[in-house]
Design a protein around this nucleic acid. Sequence first.
DNA 1: AAGGTAGGCAACCGCCACACG
DNA 2: TCGTGTGGCGGTTGCCTACCT
Length: 225
Amino acid sequence: MAPVTKESVDRRKMKGGEAMKNTKRKVNKGAWTTEEDQKLAEAIETHGAKRWKTIASKAGLNRCGKSCRLRWLNYLRPNIKRGNISDQEEDLIVRLHKLLGNRWSLIAGRLPGRTDNEIKNYWNSHLSKRISQKEKENGANLTRKMISTDHQKDHVQMKEDASLLEAATSTSTTSASSSAASKGGDQNSNINIDVDDFFDFSNEGSLNLEWVSKFLEQDHGRWLN
DNA sequence: AAGGTAGGCAACCGCCACACG
DNA sequence: TCGTGTGGCGGTTGCCTACCT
């Protein structure tokens, strides 16, 4: 609803700037100022995007390392796409959420330039409501209808995917999957798949839906039979 | 025009896992 | 092996803005 305009961001930054003046607080919180962004970017350029606590101090920021990391990953990092989530991206989010639950970082890994925070926000503010509404209207057929857009009608159905992957649980379990599944404790955490393998995107290009089919056909093709 | 409300987003919080000494 | 520090993640909160009455 309320798009974040440059003006609104600036205003938030002004508020953050005011907060900075409050020297009683050792660690600054709240909105980041342009100056802070600049300092952080310079520090990361010099020292790399690691050891966030060190970066925070090297940059002369009264921020905790976590805050710096978050700011970098969600806002300052290069190649970040902002706003305008396409239909294709939305569809992918829905499908991945069906598979993975609230594991936003994994979902974000499938969407180049998107952050887990952005996807989480998008889900919470757009998709979850729409889905719950559709669930009321259509019952169990909801997901199938939502993902049946023109460009991907031929692909696997998420419900079936979930069943297949659930079936895979009995024979394909790794430490990576258990580790990832242990986080969040979402509704799909019982689906244990080889996450390292499943989410190895190093050889892939931009957004596409082939990986689902690829995965199902290759390593786990037997589940389709 | 003014106040109330809901939506959207950025950022914080708390927990957990891992690395390292 | 244990304790501590750090990073990563999902959940939640707070602020701002557009819309509604």
